[in-house]
Measured scan of single mutants.
Amino acid sequence: MTYRVRIENADGEVVTIEISADELREKGLTLEELLPPNARIVEVEEVEP
């Protein structure tokens, strides 16, 4: 499974990243732990691999 994640950074700019569930598991991280300081998740969407 892959996630498309929209993130708002500290400057108010919204960027989109895609990350797979396998990648998260391998790194032992959650989506929140990948965020840079002062950023927030705006939207998470599951996409087909």
Rank of each mutant, 00 (worst) to 15 (best):
A21V: 10
I19K: 00
G28Q: 06
N9H: 11
E45D: 06
R40E: 03
E32T: 10
E46T: 13
E43V: 07
E48K: 13
E26H: 11
I7Q: 00
P36V: 03
V42H: 03
G28M: 06
R6K: 15
I17K: 01
G12L: 02
N38L: 08
L34K: 03
I41C: 04
M1V: 15
T16C: 12
I41M: 04
L24R: 01
L29T: 06
T2L: 15
P37I: 08
E13Q: 13
V14H: 08
D22W: 10
V44G: 01
A21E: 09
L24Y: 03
A10Y: 09
E26S: 12
K27L: 12
I7H: 02
Y3H: 08
T2R: 15
P49Q: 13
R4L: 14
N38A: 05
L29V: 11
V47T: 05
M1E: 06
N38Y: 13
L31D: 00
N9E: 04
P49C: 12
E13F: 11
D11F: 12
N38F: 12
N9W: 12
P49L: 13
V15P: 00
K27A: 08
R6I: 15
D22Y: 09
I17D: 00
E46M: 15
I7E: 00
I7C: 05
E13P: 01
R6E: 05
T16A: 03
V42Q: 05
L31P: 01
A10Q: 10
T30I: 05
P49D: 11
E8Y: 10
E18Q: 07
Y3W: 11
G28R: 06
E8T: 08
V15N: 05
I41E: 01
V42P: 00
E33V: 04
V15F: 15
E46G: 06
P49Y: 13
G12A: 02
I41L: 06
I7Y: 15
V15T: 09
I41A: 02
I7L: 07
P37N: 06
V15Y: 15
E8N: 03
I17F: 11
R40Y: 06
V42R: 04
T2S: 12
G12W: 01
S20W: 05
V14S: 06
G12Q: 02
V47M: 11
L31F: 07
V14I: 15
E33A: 11
E33Y: 04
E33F: 05
A21G: 09
E33R: 04
D22S: 12
L24C: 04
V47N: 04
N38K: 05
V5L: 05
T16G: 01
L35D: 00
N38R: 07
E48W: 15
E45L: 13
E48C: 12
L29F: 07
E43T: 12
T16W: 14
V44C: 12
V14K: 05
L35V: 09
E48I: 14
K27W: 09
L24F: 04
A10N: 07
V14C: 11
E45S: 09
E13S: 15
